[in-house]
Design a protein around this nucleic acid. Structure first.
Lengths: 207, 207
DNA sequence: AACTGTGAAATTATTCACAGCT
DNA sequence: AGCTGTGAATAATTTCACAGTT
């Protein structure tokens, strides 16, 4: 049932889901409407939705509730996911207090830092633990998603511990490109690089 | 001189630059070495570097300093860029205090919020202004890059003000897909969507 | 009439593999 | 010998355009 979906289509599915939630009240929604709501082309919407089955009714569009359920199941967001956070500086704190995750089924259930001034404090109901306890806790609680919000130094080491303890997918905010085995999913969010992409856009626009 | 570079190559250039900075001391570096340092293939490195000229010396590799300078100039990061921050909640605060930006030539020179408890406070040497002053300040100071770290509600409105005031490139952290004219560069960093990509990876791996 | 699903074309991006320079 | 630069091949992704369904 779950087939070959182009990598590039996955974030679009997330977005379709989001606008479907927002369009509550409607029974059907057309690719054209989804196009307007997401800024993707209608053809792209239709193509994306056929990757995992035929949901549309010609003449009417897509049934909102059925499509929502289908996307959830494809993405795996119909389950709840426990998440571990490594690094509770400014960014880590922001992530801890971000309410958007839980709504999508992601729950940060423990957080670690190596700064003794932070260890032991409780933020958003979570007691920050010493980084030395990271491996054991992750193993015990059988966590498969990790968020790394440490400085670049030490990030690879933290990631090694996460992987050795069973984490299978990592969202990395540290400005490094960590080495991970192919069995582990890795997404890097690299703020400087995003700004440099903007700088390139601005530079290029002027010529 | 500045030619057609595939969009996808731009963030790789940033990364080449970063590893070049880290490999200080060497005069030359080969595509093979850059490949090892970045995890891109050597062929990709060579292809990317030819997009903006011929820098290599067969038999030796690329001259580190010359290549660094060339990448800076391509990306536009040889200049300094003033940046405006809208939204100084947890995430905005984290961005304000992130030291990595300034090193790459990006400087957040003013910050705005609509929460009166925050307005007037000084963070990292920047006095937080009321959101009502956003448009005028951006115009006066002629800022072309904006970072939006507000909640989803209101983000589009803030972005409209930024654009009307002359901002030409936006890094958006709010969980919406803002409408912007084609002349404005927009990059979305959407944390929930990144986590959903990881969930998809995990779900798919199990089948 | 309205809209989907999809072959086929077009575009974009990556990889191969090797001729040619140092 | 070592390494670049690049045509050509391949792969991935998007867009076109329309036959077919409701």
């Amino acid at each position: 049932m779950i087939n070959k979906i182009p990598q590039a289509a996955v974030p679009r599915l997330s977005l379709y889901y989001r606008v479907l939630v927002e369009s509550r009240g409607k029974d059907y929604v057309s690719s054209d409407e989804l196009s307007k709501l997401t800024n993707f082309t209608a053809a792209q919407v239709r193509r994306d939705l056929t990757y995992f089955g035929q949901f549309g009714t010609p003449g009417k569009g897509y049934e909102v509730e059925a499509l929502k359920k289908a996307i959830l199941s494809i993405l795996g967001t119909d389950k709840n996911w426990d998440v571990v956070l490594a690094g509770v500086g400014n960014l880590g704190t922001a992530l801890l207090s971000y309410k958007g995750f839980e709504k999508q089924g992601f729950k940060i259930i423990c957080a670690f830092d190596n700064d003794l001034r932070r260890v032991g404090k409780t933020l958003e109901g979570i007691k920050i633990q010493d980084i030395s306890e990271l491996g054991n806790t992750v193993k015990e609680r059988n966590i498969s998603i990790g968020i790394v919000a440490t400085p670049g130094e030490g990030a690879q080491e933290v990631i090694n511990i996460l992987i050795k303890s069973g984490v299978k997918a990592i969202l990395n905010f540290a400005p490094i490109r960590p080495q991970v085995p192919p069995s582990v999913g890795l997404l890097n969010i690299d703020l400087s690089i995003e700004l440099e992409r903007l700088a390139y856009f601005l530079t290029k626009s002027k010529s």
